[in-house]
Simulated assay, not measured.
Amino acid sequence: MTPAATSAGGAEPREDIAPVRAGEELDWSALEAHLRAGVEGLSGEFSVLQFPRGSANLTYCVSFGDRRLVVRRPPFGKIAPGAHDMGREYRVLARLHERYDRAPRALLYCADESVIGAPFLVSEYRDGVVVWDSVPASMAHLNAAGFRIGLAVIDGLADLHAVDPESCGLADLGRPDGYLGRQVHGWSSRWDAVAAHAPSRETARIVEEVGRRIRAEIPRSQRAGIVHNDYKVDNCQFAPGDPDRVKSVFDWDMATTGDVLVDLGTLLNYWPDRTVEPDSDAAFIAVPGMHGLDLPSRAEVVERYAANSDLDLTRISWYEAFGCWKTVVILQQLYARFVRGETTDPRMGMRGALVEPLARRALGLLAG
């Protein structure tokens, strides 16, 4: 394996690429042979690094000489039905890039689990920076860089929702009719599958109360479009030095067609709000430290999105609560994998502590 490199020109460190984490090695010989046979133009020495900051799918940076590719496969262990769908992600990325240039182009899909133990996809590698807990060095000197990053993320979502699924061959990606009802039912089932590993009975009770309220208050969907289903700041990539436009959007394995406001609710759920006390339940975000970015407030997120959409946003609190509840379930899934010994990543062992406070936050949103 080669050490993590620097990006073109050395302007930004590749801190998001690292040696492969212990226990997450694959059959590299089999992978190399499959890629050389399936992707045109590969030559040079084969090497692998990992994108270590994701917490579910395993994502690797595979190099053949100077050419880089991205390889993604599901996590090890038991997988929830419909989750980590590499075939779906391939289908989306093989077509969406024609109408939405922030979507990396897919190059190959392998359904043969004998190669590396699970289905996987290969996509183009894009150079750039992902915003985690600080403004990237290449933007730090710019005026209001964090605020501009936030506006660019919102605009990237609005632009996605403006894409006509039929225009890029994705009209049949999902079933928009009854979408919200099926989503709520599906996430209820995912919780049921891991509820036995809840950190406490009280935690389970609160999560189940959130689910009951979510099911009882489903709003009427207004318009269907392409739904990313995990759109957030750290799934967006920027060109170094440019905070005003998202260059790439990652993690499309849950994409579908349906009620696009689900994406806005998800984004709000993950969004740090400088108008909220950092230690309050309402302040939960996925990446600690993001409060220092000085992003737009959640109210400004809604305002910016509304300026680029004709949708009625009066029920957006339900969508944010739904996004919050989904995050609860995802955290519990990750914690359950740790409890069952299916991952060696110590971060997963800490996910359980977040389940109850986040469920309480969802109840607060539903209470208005």
Rank of each mutant, 00 (worst) to 15 (best):
A198W: 01
A198M: 04
P199K: 10
S200F: 01
S200C: 03
S200W: 00
S200Q: 02
R201S: 13
R201A: 06
R201M: 12
R201W: 06
R201D: 14
E202H: 11
E202Y: 10
E202Q: 11
E202I: 15
E202M: 10
T203A: 15
T203E: 05
T203M: 03
T203V: 13
A204F: 02
A204E: 05
R205T: 15
R205W: 12
I206G: 11
I206D: 10
V207I: 13
V207H: 05
E208S: 09
E209L: 09
V210P: 00
V210Y: 00
V210H: 01
G211L: 12
G211H: 07
G211D: 03
G211W: 00
G211T: 02
R212M: 14
R212Y: 05
R212C: 08
R212Q: 14
R212V: 06
R212E: 15
R213T: 02
R213L: 10
I214E: 07
I214G: 03
R215H: 12
R215N: 08
R215G: 05
R215Q: 15
A216S: 07
E217A: 15
E217C: 12
E217P: 12
I218K: 01
P219Y: 03
P219G: 04
R220D: 11
R220V: 07
R220T: 04
R220P: 11
R220A: 15
R220Y: 09
S221K: 04
S221A: 09
S221I: 14
S221T: 08
Q222H: 04
Q222G: 04
R223D: 15
R223N: 10
R223M: 14
R223Y: 08
R223T: 13
A224Y: 00
A224W: 10
A224C: 03
A224E: 09
A224P: 02
G225D: 07
G225T: 04
G225A: 11
G225F: 15
G225E: 02
I226Y: 07
I226V: 13
I226D: 01
I226C: 07
V227L: 09
V227Y: 02
V227K: 04
V227C: 03
V227M: 01
V227A: 01
H228M: 13
N229R: 13
N229S: 14
N229Y: 05
N229M: 09
D230N: 03
D230R: 06
Y231I: 04
K232E: 05
V233L: 08
V233T: 11
V233E: 10
D234N: 14
D234R: 02
D234G: 06
D234F: 04
N235K: 08
N235I: 00
N235V: 00
N235T: 05
N235Q: 06
N235H: 04
Q237R: 14
F238N: 02
F238K: 06
F238H: 01
F238W: 07
A239S: 14
